[in-house]
Structure formats: C-alpha cells, structure tokens
Design a protein around this nucleic acid. Structure first.
Lengths: 243, 243
DNA sequence: CTCAATTTGTTCGTATGTATG
DNA sequence: ACATACATACGAACAAATTGA
C-alpha cells in the first residue's frame, strides 16, 4: 500500500466506499461530464495506489447507481442525461419561507415518545403553559426530504386543530387571528441521520443532514412554535443575499 | 440478527462504526450528560440487537476518543468536562460577515492547478478579463476550519497586491477605493471532504462539510470576487433572523 | 483479416477485518 | 477466549471486447 492509500486508511471506512465517494464527487462537480470517459482502471489503480479489484468494486457501485456505464474494451463512461439534482432552497426570509412551504402536504406520524415541552435556548423567549407535539414527514416529487418535529403552544393549536393536523403549521400560524408574531429565527447546523430520521427520509444511517431549529415568538415573548427539522443533506441549498 | 440490526445493515459501513456514531451523537445532544452512566452493554446489545463484542468495539472507539470511560463492575461513564463545541457562526449580513472575518489570519498555499477563471452561474454577473487565484486555510484557536479558494479580478488585486496576499480578501475589498460593490451573495450546500480538503482541514475523507460559494459583483456587473469555501461540517452554525 | 494495444471483466490464493454465538 | 462465517483488500494472472494499424 502506497503513501496515498495511507491517507485513505486513516479512516476506518472501507476503502472501496471512500474511492466510490471520491469518484462520485468528481462526476457531481463536473470533473467528468456526462458522456465522457473516466480514467481507466489502470490509471485509477495508479492514482489511488490500490489493487485493481478494489477500484473495480468502487466503480461497480457507481454503475449500480446508474451514474456510469462500463464497456469492456472501451472504458467507463458517465451516463448521459443524469437528471440535475433537485435542490430545495431553504428560504431566509419569512414571507418567502411561508410561500414555499405553503402548499406542502405533510404526512403526519404518531409521536408517542416526544418530550412534552421544547427545550428553549437563550433568545427563544419563554415557555408556553402547554404544548402540542406534531411529527411529520415532508415530501416533494414523492421523495421525503425532511422530518419536522413541532411543538405548538396548545392555546394556539386549539384555535384551528384540524387545520394544524392536516397542513404545514408555519403558514397557518402566520394567518391566524389573535396570534401576533413578534420574532422568528432559525439556526442551522450540519448533523447526521439517526435511526428514526434515516428510516423516515430513506437515507443511510449517519449520512449528513441539515438540522434546523425554527422558533416563532409572539408579542408576549412566548415561544408559540418551536420546530426541529431534519433535512436530507444532499437536497438542501441556501441562498443568501449579503447586501 | 434482529430486525433492527437489519436497518443498520442497509448501510455498507461497518456496524461498530454506525453504533459508535449513534452513541457519540447521544452524548453530543445531551441524552447522556457528562459524569452520567450510559446504558450497560446488556442494554445496548438488546437495543441494537447485536453481539456483545460489536457494541464493545463501538464503545472502545469512544473511550479512545476520550468521550467515555469504562470501569469494570461499575459501568461506562461520559467523561466530565468535555469542552463545549466551538461553533463558528456563518454571518448572513455583509457588515457582520466582514466584521467577523476581519481579523482572521489566513495561511496561504501555493495553488498551481487552479482554473484560470471561476465558473460563473446565472446571477453571478459577467467575467472579468483576468483573475488572480488565492488559496488559503483559515484557522481559529490553532484549528483549521475552512479552505478558501478565491478568484479575484486582476485589476482589483493589483490595487493592493501585498495586502491581498496577507489578509482575508473580503474586508480588504470592502474598503478599497475605486471598487464599488453593487451586489454580493452566497450559496451554501452540504458536501463531503475530498482528498485536498480532508488533508488541509485535518478531517477524514468524505466527512461532511459546508460548501459556500460567495460572489461579489461591482457596479459594472463584473464578478470581481468569487470564493469557494469549504468549512468543516462539525463547526459551522448559521443563525437567521426571519423577521 | 490478422495482430497488437487498450481496457474492462474474472479468477485464485492469501491475509486481515468484521460480526456472530 | 474460541470457532466460524463472511467481507475487505491485495497482487497477479488470464479472459474477452474494442480499436486501429
């Protein structure tokens, strides 16, 4: 094993998976474009300093994913017409945010083992007396992209229980009479899918996710809406105008 | 192997790594707090439906990381005084952004194999005649947290070459005479570390990253600054005020 | 048409790692 | 700690398809 392979060896993850990820990335960023021939096995062996069979195994993965096609005697080619990734743009403005999620149809899930109250951090206002918990999966094009766990102040919920049970909460909240939204903020970090999220989003355990925490505070300083959202990491994008 | 273990089996990643990641997460989110005893091997075996040795191997990893301490006859305990994660807040406002990165001292790196021009997308304005490329690593508390690859319009660069070669470009740009910034925007996606980024950031290959693309456009509609920034995924946080 | 060069595909033997009971 | 089964990784050799001389 060469010195380069040692860099890969620092990770306990199987080599062929690491190589597969590297190659997959090259295709994604356009280093190898659709229809184009990728490096030969010989070249890849040399580059990664690994056995032919190992590199082969990596390429086999990509072939099964439909990302490349191998042809004996000719080479391996990036599949033509790979559909562009469908990015989900996470809006950073209240009105835009409401607009984009307004028509989403969540699939609600029984949430037995949820904490009765949300955990608040500094700046999140103060707790309401009681909360209702709603767990749902959001989908687009039949593909689940986010798991949403919402704590909604009970008195707000009671104003339109059946609507909150069938629609996305945020847009409903913004149009509800008797509730004045004073502040709303969101924090975002990169995480990894736990068991539950992996199941619901149909992704691999521990694959990267974006974890958002969205808090809406009313004019009394009460956190009426606290959502913890787990997005698939491979489908979210954030666009920010700095000026 | 039980049904639960089958969920883990869907991933080609070794089981003990998956379990380790799951347990690590539990400690990070505070499910098990410092000083506290975590579940016994028996319980974990039962929960994950795996062989004792497999769970043990996962815990051994955490012990080597210093996250837990195992004591025969007593149990396994979360290490006291694990330092809180130092989050790096990615600002979403020009003035805040400039302020936070102003005093950073980048370590510049030779970049031979960089494209002469940045790839522009719609909304990025038009290309300048020529660009200078700068590659650097940003650190905080001696820990590298981002790799920055900047394309700077040559005529802008020439106005203060030695400053651009020793300081972070954005704040310099914002105070430079003769350059009027008309627009600036940033997009952010979740990616995974390639070879180069993994080396420079001292993280594992393919571990999650935040990939930012920051474009600054002058009053002529020219993209004078195009940066591609790769952050360690485990250290960035984004705070957005929605209202 | 044949031959050689190129390139993917397959097989074997061995060693080590992962996971079980 | 042990016996067992399967996955990962290696190197090397060989087979089969494609291409161009």
């Amino acid at each position: 094993m060469g010195p380069l392979a040692r860099t890969y060896k620092r990770s306990p993850i199987p080599l062929y998976l690491q190589v597969a990820a590297t190659l997959r990335r090259r295709i994604e960023v356009g280093h190898w474009k659709p229809g184009q021939k990728i490096s030969t096995l010989e070249e890849l062996e040399a580059e990664f300093q690994m056995a032919r069979v190992t590199v082969r195994q990596a390429i086999e993965m990509l072939e099964n994913e439909g990302l490349v096609q191998c042809r004996q005697g000719k080479g391996t080619f990036v599949t033509r017409g790979i559909k562009d990734k469908r990015w989900l743009n996470l809006e950073t403005e209240w009105s835009e945010l409401v607009k984009t999620i307004e028509d989403n149809v969540p699939r609600f899930i029984d949430s037995a083992d949820a904490p009765r109250q949300p955990r608040l951090k500094t700046g999140d206002g103060r707790l309401a007396e009681e909360y209702v918990h709603l767990l749902s999966v959001q989908s687009r094009h039949k593909e689940p992209y986010a798991v949403v766990s919402v704590h909604l102040a009970r008195d707000v919920y009671e104003r339109a229980p059946d609507v909150f049970r069938s629609r996305v909460a945020l847009p409903v909240l913004s149009t509800l009479d008797g509730v004045t939204i004073a502040r709303a903020h969101q924090t975002l970090v990169i995480g990894s899918a736990d068991m539950e999220a992996a199941e619901l989003l149909n992704i691999m355990l521990n694959s990267p996710t974006a974890e958002a925490r969205c808090v809406v505070i009313d004019d009394q300083g009460v956190a009426v809406y606290v959502a913890e959202i787990i997005y698939r990491g491979d489908s979210v994008k954030l666009h920010i105008d700095l000026l």
